[in-house]
């Protein structure tokens, strides 16, 4: 664990009414690395990501951004430093890809916001990285699900934040589009030193792309660390209540999870 995490939580609790979704959670997000957040549905992944983006207030504890309490940072400054992609985001009917991407410049613009060269360059880069240049003038509602997801990724990239939070970026996408998004996130980490935190359902994909895993269950961190150090059959059973075999992947040696069938479970 690097000594200066990009984001960290200290005793963070979040509750809706009387139910605690996140309860006294501590975590560190390593700077310039790909972190995957895994855990069953309802474990608090989305809520945690919202809190890390300053979109969800804590009932107690705090979130630190570069060591500074996130709550003391204004919304615009926070949006210049942390970008978030929601699952199932939607935009007004008829809006084009480039119009959506240009909105990503909001936190960088002054009150009456004149458009400048830096804005232009950031949008061009976002469209290039997401391979959307040819679709820039198309209305979002004429695109496929994967293209639309890339358009929202492009909007977040136009924010030019050092930290990128992705809430289940691959859900509802077919395999090639899932890999597109994960490859893009990986490239941003390698080439630009971006800090990525992605909630990912598929544990094998998470272990394959992320250098650091944070495992969440019932609003608390079960364990965190490099995939090959923490992913074990015992962990999978504890967190997901699934019996599985864990083998090193023949491609890169990272852990590969093979859930057992009922017959195999009864055999063992």
């Amino acid at each position: 664990m690097p000594s200066d995490p990009a984001l960290s939580a200290r005793g963070a609790s979040i509750g809706y009414r009387d139910r605690a979704v996140i309860d006294g959670l501590d975590l560190n997000v390593p700077r310039g690395a790909f972190t995957a957040l895994i855990g069953p549905n309802g474990s608090g992944k989305s809520t945690l990501l919202r809190a890390l983006a300053r979109l969800q207030s804590l009932s107690s504890g705090q979130i630190l951004l570069d060591g500074r309490a996130l709550a003391t940072i204004g919304p615009r400054e926070a949006a210049r430093r942390v970008g978030i992609l929601f699952q199932g985001a939607s935009a007004p009917e008829g809006m084009t890809v480039s119009e959506l991407v240009q909105e990503g410049r909001y936190p960088h613009r002054s009150l009456f916001g004149r458009w400048n060269r830096a804005d232009e360059a950031a949008c061009a880069r976002a469209l290039r990285l997401t391979k959307l240049e040819a679709l820039a003038d198309r209305p979002l509602d004429t695109l496929s699900g994967g293209q639309r997801q890339r358009a929202f990724v492009a909007m977040v990239l136009a924010q030019e934040t050092g930290i990128l939070l992705l809430d289940e970026p691959t859900t509802y996408l077919d395999l090639p589009h899932q890999l597109d998004i994960l490859e893009l996130a990986g490239a941003l980490v390698r080439e630009e030193g971006t800090t990525v935190v992605a909630a990912i359902h598929d544990i094998n994909q998470a272990a394959r792309y992320a250098a650091h895993l944070i495992v969440l269950k019932d609003g608390a961190v079960v364990t965190a660390g490099p995939p090959d150090a923490i992913v074990t059959p015992a962990l999978i059973e504890e967190v997901f209540a699934v019996k599985a075999m864990v083998v090193p992947s023949p491609v890169d040696g990272r852990p590969l999870i093979l859930p057992l069938t009922r017959a195999e479970r009864e055999d063992s």
Partner: peptide
């Protein structure tokens, strides 16, 4: 004067908030 702010509000509360609009 505020047409840019109004345009960002029109994206809906979710996106406007994630872009840092108050």
């Amino acid at each position: 004067l505020l047409r840019g702010q109004i345009a960002t509000l029109s994206l809906g509360p979710e996106i406007a908030a994630q872009l840092g609009q108050n």
